[in-house]
């Protein structure tokens, strides 16, 4: 465990807490893509299959349970909570996210470390996580006003993966010197998808203006 990875995990956790707080406090999920949240549930379920079979550390186990639990809670709020679900605007959440599942799964069948169920699904979860933010970014581009909490949520989500890239650099040069192409490449693709969001987010922050993504 190094500082970059710990900071990355904490930023990831923080992004989820920001989102849960937004939904719980405002009883609204406007501007949030349910599709991205559903993809995250699939990512965590396929990523943490070894939750009960392999013990890495208490930290690891606790964080996995928290990530699975919170992502379920967010989807539950947006789908079933009597007040929140009315604030979900499905006509602006238009991305065909199920079209992401098959390519990621096929790619995992072709490109993986070991051809085992656990490893193929773990690899699938990495590829899926890389593109899971797409419905949310598309929604932000279409929605008129992006409220601060939603903007912060996406920012911290991107920052977490950026910190993981630093963690991989640190681990490779200072620790185990082992290349892990699959997490590296999917993590870089994921971080790259945030690049333009980061640009407009920081620009709006510097100009003290409302965040607006070009359509």
């Amino acid at each position: 465990m190094n500082l970059f990875r710990l900071a990355g995990d904490m930023t990831h956790l923080f992004s989820i807490i920001v989102l849960l707080l937004k939904i719980h406090a405002t009883k609204s999920c406007s501007g949030i893509s349910l599709k991205t949240q559903e993809l995250y549930v699939i990512v965590f379920l396929t990523r943490y299959l070894d939750l009960f079979t392999r013990f890495v550390s208490l930290y690891n186990t606790v964080m996995k349970i928290v990530f699975i639990g919170t992502s379920f809670a967010i989807v539950w709020y947006m789908r079933y909570h009597k007040v929140v679900k009315q604030t979900y605007n499905k006509d602006e959440d238009t991305f065909k996210h199920y079209f992401l599942l098959l390519p990621c799964f096929v790619l995992a069948l072709l490109l993986h470390n070991e051809f085992t169920t656990m490893d193929v699904l773990w690899t699938f979860s990495l590829y899926l996580e890389a593109v899971a933010i797409l419905p949310q970014l598309v929604l932000l581009q279409q929605s008129r006003n992006i409220d601060n909490l939603t903007g912060n949520y996406v920012f911290f989500l991107g920052a977490y993966r950026g910190l993981y890239v630093l963690n991989w650099i640190y681990r490779y040069f200072l620790q185990d010197h082992r290349a892990r192409w699959i997490p590296w490449i999917s993590g870089l693709v994921q971080t790259a998808l945030y690049a333009d969001f980061f640009y407009y987010y920081i620009l709006s922050w510097k100009k003290h203006e409302k965040l607006k993504l070009p359509a």
Binding site: R5, D9, S57, F67, Y164, D176, R178, R180
Partner: peptide, 10 residues
Amino acid sequence: AEEHAAKDEL
């Protein structure tokens, strides 16, 4: 063991 090490991350 080699690949499992890669899975110590979240």
